[in-house]
Design a protein around this nucleic acid. Sequence first.
DNA 1: CTCTTGTTTGACAAAATTGTTAAACAAAAG
DNA 2: CTTTTGTTTAACAATTTTGTCAAACAAGAG
Lengths: 195, 195
Amino acid sequence: MTTRDTGTEQLIKDTAKHLFFAEGKIHATTQEIADAAGVNRTLVNYYFKSRDILFDQVFNEAQESLVTTLDEVMDAPVPFKQKIEHLITVFLKEFGQFPYREVFIITQMNNNNVINAKKARVKRVEALLTEISIEMDKGTIKTMDPRHFLMNLFSLMAYPLVTSPLQKILFNMDDDGYAQLMEQRKQLIFETIFP
Amino acid sequence: MTTRDTGTEQLIKDTAKHLFFAEGKIHATTQEIADAAGVNRTLVNYYFKSRDILFDQVFNEAQESLVTTLDEVMDAPVPFKQKIEHLITVFLKEFGQFPYREVFIITQMNNNNVINAKKARVKRVEALLTEISIEMDKGTIKTMDPRHFLMNLFSLMAYPLVTSPLQKILFNMDDDGYAQLMEQRKQLIFETIFP
DNA sequence: CTCTTGTTTGACAAAATTGTTAAACAAAAG
DNA sequence: CTTTTGTTTAACAATTTTGTCAAACAAGAG
């Protein structure tokens, strides 16, 4: 009954997470996952019963972790402008590690039950939109549909990360150069959002 | 030797394109493609030899079509600002139809030979960056690294389209409402890019 | 040391997906 | 009408991927 905890279960999850979200190998085989983790393939079934269950578990945990991180930033008792600045830093750092995560969420949105998990976020988003409207009234940011403000912010942050493999090729840059470009980007996004 | 052209080959390609890029079913089975097209599965092999070949063909054609469209816009002999305005309109229209196309390009970039196909675009991009620099010198647009200008532009256009399923849920909107929001967005992007 | 039990492994079975082939079918040519 | 040839179909085979099971293994309990 007492678990010996060889760390194998966590190793498999971590490896799967890396393959899925860092390398973009969304449809990695159980064999590929096992190989990457350096364990026997059968262990995937032993610990997670099926590939789908491993899949869902990794997805949900990554999802919750991200949501928690963003919520913490937005709940901090600091002025709006400062909160957004912090958000940009945290978001770029977090997504730099797993650039394929959000793409994955989108592509999964067709078949699965992600929709229900997301509907729980609607009220949260509504509250955020209200907060943005208030800031517009105060004159902190340019007046527009607050939904556009949110879309602008996340567009400017996420898109360059999601498409980083493409950008590196088109701009003929290596990893260091791109990391540097993204570092500059923090300030630029902030200035674009708060002109 | 004379082909009878029952339209089946084109039907399969069109169906595959729709499944891949409009519905996001990137890994649709040959059976699923055939069912969606209303034809026998074997015809996929008859016309395209293998699923991979169908895959590559649909991908390349969609890619070429997009590149040609964007090139035409950027080669038009009109002032820069007007060109960008046209680009926004064309891009939003084109991507509204196949929101998953660019996501697909990214997720494929690991394993495949997409890289070589993309490297041919590097010079084109360099020329565009030069054009942007000149406009900055002229004062038409705010001075910054021209790569950021390009990233900003495409971020603001592409991200809301790529993530449209998610946005609809979070903002609690139906298709019409979202289409309306994207229509407003044209003007907003233009103003954000040219403050 | 022995027993218990969680862990790991290899062999096997099942399922899903893809590819091949021969025959049936249908439209155009003669 | 008959032949030709491109098209379509169903049955079969091959491959890939997933899931199951019994036995081997190893660490802690007694």
